[in-house]
Design a binder for these strands. Structure first.
Lengths: 222, 222, 222, 222
DNA sequence: TCGTAAACGAGACGGTACGTCCTGTCTTAAC
DNA sequence: GTTAAGACAGGACGTACCGTCTCGTTTACGA
């Protein structure tokens, strides 16, 4: 989330973990301003949403945030790194799937969580603008995949495990493609058109869960 | 495919529709060179694959194609229009799904056609570089959706119709999400990581077709 | 004067001087605009006079001349080269000393020419702003010395020769320091203060010409 | 020499001279370091000699002197003030002309003092780099003229007075241009090229002193 | 067969943004 | 209260491309 501020926090903590008399990498000079950090990320979010990534200009970020360009470059080496931090920040709240005791509801949540993040929060316009860079540029894609995508895979896996434990899902249901089947259709429509409605999510989940169903007359099979 | 060369052809045809003896807007001067047209598209393909769309520069296209910049602008009003033509050209061969009499094979073809286009042809790197622009920029996305995406939806719909007619698929199978379920997972992995192998395609198709199956012991249900 | 436009003029002339069938280095592309060239030099002159060389910004030149920065860099590799061309252009009209038949008048002209150029023309503020660079930077100083300073030395030498021929000046008068004695005092005051008036020029010339005088009751000795 | 440190030294000294029990403008906190003062001036001298004034950066001074930027700004309000102090410090040892009883030797000293300061001490490169600023910027030029130039004028005037008293120089010799004639040629060559040798100095002084000579067969007239 | 008019390569043009450097001010902890 | 360190807003640097424009040259067509 705060991808590249870690090194500012680590030293102290690391010092505490190791040698007591060790100098904890003294922080010298004026410390970086949190207000400025926030202002830059906010301006970044607004400008990406307004113009997309290809017309996203650091000079405009600096102007809108009321900040010098050097202040941005001091914190993020490239604009990819900047938008990555923003992306992580925006993505994280939409990953978890709560255990509500109902397998179908939880499978539906996997799809609707992704969908609502895309349609109802700034995460939508931002990731839309960054799809190409996530797909092409490992510097941006790898951290995103490691954090966000893997998080979603784990959440879906837990849902499936609970569903199998409840007897709702076939123990042989293919967990390796579950995330792809539940979330892939949403991103397909994000790029290639089509409504992103609750009805769509239910159709996807119905089709998928029928394939995953244990065959018992359970909640997972409608 | 030749999206914006139409206006070069229109005048003549329109003239034919109106005044028979009228001079059909004589084409004077040196005609445009096909060699140049080809060289620009080839350079475009190479440079997008090498650098991605964000570092794609018309000046480099002109240099590599051995062409003046004005010659490019004379044919395409924006670089989006240029890459759109390239994208259409590269996408078109991978849409059709042949009727082979076997529903499962045809469903699998829907997934593997998309997958092989992405992994084995220049269409992969090119669309990867353009995902964001297709998602954000209607000038590029709308024609692409109208031609390529709709083409794929139609092909999948025909497969489903044939599968229902053969009794392999449930007549109530949800055709509205079939393309999303078969192709969405492939694009999900294109962006968000994961193998794009035949095994993956088979797992996807198995899960989906089990959901779509008529229940009869048919080829569609493994 | 037009230091780095020579290569634009040479080819044609050189072709005429050498081999008739020789290809005269074909000029391709849109030719450089003289209007732009003039506008840049004019803006340069104004801004140096207004702000001095240390606050002289190419970005301001571009803005005032209504020109892109690249257009300036296309013609002059550094701002030193730009101001050198300006300096040469401004200096050239004040070098010559006319043969008026009167040695004292001609010696006085050597001093007053320099003085009036400094006090009554843009050459003054411009060279004042460039003294350090002429003194320190050979890229600027060498061409200036070769053209302007040597020109003035030659002019003074001719005056002395005529004065000796007329019998006004001592044949042993030291021509090697004449320019320094006649013009040095003017530049001394330019930098280190003191009036630059006709009276001052006459005092200098009187003192110098008394030292150079042939001793005969001539015009050179007051 | 130490133009703006006066206010830092005065209070203490004045306190010692006046009322013993009175607390005289208490100097609180850590006192300013002379080591730092010296290091800054030394770094300034080195960097001006290495790069000239136009590429002279306070940030580099701070780095080389091992000093914070604020420490420099606390002592000198502008970089002009800083280099002015340096210039004064370097200029002062070369002003005086000793009374040796020989008018020609003393006139020669006026020229060679200036010349040797320029060729054999750091004053040369430093003033060379500052000529433009002395000529254009009163903040730097006025104090320099008041101290250094006027000092030299006074020294030359004393030489002339002694020469007239000795009967070597014409009582009507023009004292108002004497400094210009003796030193102007040296600065002319500093900027505009030519050797700065003892031979050159002697030729200048011979020509000038012949103009100033009383006509008696004295030492001043060669 | 010869004009003529558009296409062509080259590159100049006014701009915008880049990423870097430096300015003069400020904010911190250490002394 | 001075010190070293370094963050900060701002502004200029020199470079790279944008999309438009002017050149001289090339090439097919119709007169």
């Amino acid at each position: 989330m705060t991808a590249n501020r870690q090194e500012g926090l680590d030293p102290g903590e690391r010092a505490a973990n190791t040698a007591p008399p060790a100098r904890p990498v003294v922080r010298r000079g004026r410390p970086r301003s949190d207000r400025v950090h926030r202002a830059i990320l906010d301006a970044t979010r607004e400008l990406i949403i307004e113009n997309g990534f290809s017309r996203f200009r650091l000079e405009h970020v600096a102007a809108r945030a009321g900040v010098g360009k050097a202040t941005i470059y001091r914190r993020w080496p490239t604009r990819e790194a900047l938008v990555l931090e923003l992306l992580m920040e925006l993505a994280s709240p939409h990953i978890e799937i709560e255990d509500v005791g109902d397998t179908r509801v939880e499978l539906l949540a996997a799809t609707t969580n992704a969908m609502r993040a895309l349609t109802e929060t700034p995460f939508g316009p931002v990731i839309r603008a960054l799809l190409s860079h996530i797909a092409c540029n490992p510097a941006l894609g790898d951290p995103f995949r490691a954090a966000v995508v893997q998080g979603r895979r784990d959440a879906v896996a837990h849902v499936m495990e609970r569903g199998i434990a409840r007897g709702d899902l076939d123990p042989h249901a293919d967990m390796d493609v579950a995330t792809e089947l539940l979330v892939g259709p949403v991103y397909f429509r994000l790029m290639f058109g089509g409504e992103l409605t609750l009805d769509f999510a239910e159709r996807v989940v119905d089709s998928v869960s029928r394939g995953f169903s244990s065959g018992r007359d359970s909640g997972a099979g409608r």
